[in-house]
Amino acid sequence: MNSTNEIEIDVKKAERLLRKLILMEKQNLRTKQFNDAEMVKKIKKAIEEEAECY
């Protein structure tokens, strides 16, 4: 666990998210499917799903 501003996060989850994020970005660079705003939404969704998952 890691603490940021008194909030604890699961580092393993964060690292998983990080890898997922890079692969999402790679995929999108290739396909041009999503614009920046859509990508921000997708990343937020991925974070929320991972953070909620216990």
Binding site: T4, E15, L17
Partner: peptide, 24 residues
């Protein structure tokens, strides 16, 4: 924000995002 449950969640998401940003 930590006093409110809804806002606390946002703080948690932000903490993940910040951690990811720093690591990245």
């Amino acid at each position: 924000t930590l006093r409110d449950e809804k806002n606390k969640k946002i703080e948690i998401y932000k903490a993940y995002a910040q951690f990811m940003y720093d690591e990245l």
